[in-house]
Amino acid sequence: MQELNPLLHSQLRLAVMSILMNVEEADFVYLKEKTESTAGNLSVQLDKLASAGYINIEKDMSGKRPRTICSVSDIGRNAFIEYVEALKSYINI
């Protein structure tokens, strides 16, 4: 049985990756709303995913407000696919 990637096997990081796998890019406000997380927690988890190279984070300005836009990287995409495969083997799908 494959081992589950510990970086992805956490509720919030997995939620973020699941959303980003489904869209081209999403900003911090959108991710926060969909995952129903706090800004601080989400920020920490995004940094962890970015440090692992799973997501790309770009910061720009939307009018006067700063905006953080996230997108999944190729490494992240492959890791997520592998994670789902491993998950399937655990729950016998």
């Binding site: 589950l4 096997h9 956490s10 509720q11 997995l14 995952t35 927690n41 920490v44 655990y90 729950i91």
Partner: peptide, 14 residues
């Protein structure tokens, strides 16, 4: 949503 460990079933649910 907290940063907590989950079971494989919960992972699929998320």
């Amino acid at each position: 949503m907290e940063e907590k460990k989950i079971t494989p079933e919960e992972g699929m649910q998320v």
